[in-house]
């Protein structure tokens, strides 16, 4: 037996389409952690990330014969995951008050109540993370996804463009617009002199 574990992605995908029962699972194990990170950051919620990822991998399983090899297998997998997330995010936006988000808000306000000094301790890190997530929720999906890939997860603009299937300039402009929108709610997390229009109540970090 050859070591299936060591075959390149493309070969695994080909074998899968030819009926190999193991190949796809190997591919999944190889990339699942990275794609899990993408799904978690996109969805901001573990359960939803899990659901999106299951959908995406099953979709990839079924549509593997449509992979034409014009991109990397990883790019193709990313695209499927990102599309699955996009779909769920859009649905979530359509009906904004899901229990998940209420929970998030509760945690958010509790954290704020607990904050007194605001030093770089664990609580404020948690708060920062929640702020970031809540702020991202307020962005249009296109901007949110571009920023999540580029700024948050560190993908190069070119990679993000391939994953999102748009031009690099489009990724840049989505990121630029997104950063401009996030500035009032996020800049204070870094900057000692926040602009005047933040920190009123929940400020710009209040989703919907």
């Amino acid at each position: 037996m050859d070591a299936v574990q060591e075959l390149p992605d493309r070969e695994l995908l080909t074998r899968h389409t030819q009926g190999d029962d193991q190949a796809f699972a190997v591919l999944v194990r190889r990339h699942r952690d990275r794609l899990w990170a993408v799904a978690v950051r996109m969805m901001g919620d573990r359960e939803e990330a899990s659901d999106a990822l299951q959908d995406a991998f099953l979709s990839a399983f079924r549509s593997a014969d449509r992979f034409r090899g014009e991109s990397q297998v990883t790019t193709w997998l990313h695209r499927i995951v990102v599309n699955a997330c996009h779909d769920r995010l859009r649905r979530r936006k359509a009906r904004p008050s899901t229990p998940t988000e209420d929970d998030t808000l509760d945690v958010l306000s509790n954290d704020r109540l607990g904050r007194v000094g605001g030093g770089p301790d664990h609580a404020s890190q948690t708060e920062a993370r929640l702020d970031v997530h809540a702020a991202l929720e307020t962005l249009p999906l296109d901007q949110r996804m571009a920023l999540t890939l580029v700024d948050m997860l560190g993908y190069r603009v070119e990679e993000a463009a391939q994953i999102l299937d748009v031009a690099t300039g489009t990724v840049k402009s989505r990121c630029a617009r997104g950063r401009a929108k996030l500035l009032p709610s996020l800049a204070h997390l870094r900057n000692p002199h926040p602009p005047r229009d933040v920190t009123t109540g929940r400020g710009g970090a209040n989703p919907s």
Binding site: D33, A37, R41, L147, M152, A187, R190
Partner: peptide
Amino acid sequence: ELTAVSGVLADVPPVPPMPQDV
């Protein structure tokens, strides 16, 4: 500050590997 926004996003800690149950 715009650069700082990118920095804040980048500072979010990395996601741990996929949990075993998932």
